[in-house]
Write a protein that binds this DNA or RNA. Structure first.
Lengths: 249, 249
DNA sequence: CGCAGAATTGATACATCTCAAGCTGGGTGG
DNA sequence: CCACCCAGCTTGAGATGTATCAATTCTGCG
């Protein structure tokens, strides 16, 4: 399995959209989808491209349709911390605010289904179902952020790497069903630097811990970019959280 | 200034409520407040008391009216990380979920204005204004959690302490207007252990850094529990984030 | 083929943790 | 009223995990 080829999306029909049942529009009726279709537009960014800078005015909000985007904060002296990893169906932006609080960059080629913020605000004001879905998604992100706080504050470098791989395996398998005969595996969409920024480590430590876990047979790497997990339960154990017996989802 | 005396609340009228204009009910009209008044009830917990355990069924949601509550997560081996600090007007619980994801404890005597979750859900379903306010508050908490991720992942112990004091000074001054002639000051409602758990440090490191900053004249401590800040701008600088010139709020 | 960015590996430094001892203030009971 | 106690806090000395600095080695690509 090579890294994803990422064909450029030219999607227009919501009913065929890959994130139709997961995104902010998940609970919409056909009539409500038509409302959305009238005001949506697609935007695609190339890997490494900056989508927005923290503090910038951003008059758009929207969902990741394809690819991965990164949210990060930077201290004045350059230290950086990733604070969010946006997978397909995740929502970017905040209705009711006109600046964005974090830097947003494209990790891979990434396509958004965007709305003008003012139009989206009008829409949620008259469509409580969408507002409710957005509330659910925001609570989910808050829970995820808090879980990440536990990782950042209390886990060792080894546990951090194992936890990251667990999360990425779960998120990937929720989105893509891969042939089961090849075992559990997922692409590492992000660089060592992005991993380091997500985990609050340096790239050297990330590299050393990946090497150590690999050496101990927890996974193998295909061309340094695809992880093949040998024993998911053992990886979960290394992640340090409650060992719930190795259930994937 | 001694630690707060915390008179027990026997509040019943929303219109006199100290958090009336900040909590989830902030935008409610008098008629909507009546709806809330019918289903609300007060609960008070004593310092140190456990309010709920992570994973537990919790059929209540509500707002902190008075006092401080702590949200934390624990790893199987006992390492703990605080993931939230609930001040008056902050909301606890998640409509649409019947378990709570974190441990909740009382740092001080703390009083909640609670609702049965099912009743609150019915209420927000017919009162989009409350749902909208809850969405705003959840976005604010998400932003705060992400800022905390930057602290946990990238700041030094010294910066962490300075940042905590900045946050506590801001939150305290937003709630209580203190006589200006005595300079900027706020009570440390939480123990060194809670600070350590919030900052991802040990209590020894917290203690050493507090001593160091105190020695350098950034603040003084009154009976080890009230912080008198000598130079807020300097404290902000020590916190490491963008030095925006020492504005309090 | 050779270059540039990304990743690995090694040697050393240092911030924070760990373990241990002592201090402080408030409460209790003789 | 004083001696004691205990939880919370401080301070010290040494251990350790991760950062830092510095080479190499990979990998993809023109």
């Amino acid at each position: 399995m090579a890294m994803p080829s990422a064909p450029r999306l030219t999607q227009t029909k919501c009913s065929d959209c890959p994130i139709r049942h997961r995104a902010v529009c998940a609970q919409c009726e056909p009539a409500e989808l038509e409302d959305l279709e009238r005001i949506k537009s697609y935007r695609t960014y190339t890997p490494g491209e900056t989508i927005a800078w923290a503090g910038e005015r951003l008059s758009l909000v929207g969902s990741v349709v394809q690819g991965i985007a990164l949210l990060s904060s930077t201290l004045p002296d350059g230290r950086r911390q990733m604070v969010g990893l946006l997978f397909p169906s995740d929502f970017l932006g905040r209705p009711g605010r006109d600046t964005i609080s974090h830097d947003v960059t494209a990790a891979t080629q990434v396509t958004f289904c965007m709305f003008q913020k003012v139009e989206f605000e009008r829409l949620i004001a008259r469509t409580p179902k969408i507002q409710r879905r957005l509330l659910e998604m925001t609570f989910d992100e808050l829970d995820a952020a808090r879980d990440w706080m536990l990782l950042l504050g209390r886990k060792t470098a080894r546990e951090k790497i194992a936890s990251l791989f667990v999360i990425m395996a779960r998120r990937d398998s929720a989105l893509n069903s891969r042939p089961a005969d090849q075992g559990l595996r997922f692409p590492l969409y992000i660089t060592r630097e992005a991993m380091a920024d997500y985990l609050g480590l340096t790239i050297e430590t990330v590299s050393r811990q990946i090497s150590a876990l690999k050496r101990e047979g927890l996974f193998r790497l295909e061309e340094n970019r695809v992880v093949h997990i040998a024993d998911f339960a053992r990886l979960l154990e290394e992640a340090g959280d409650d060992s719930d017996g190795g259930v994937l989802i």
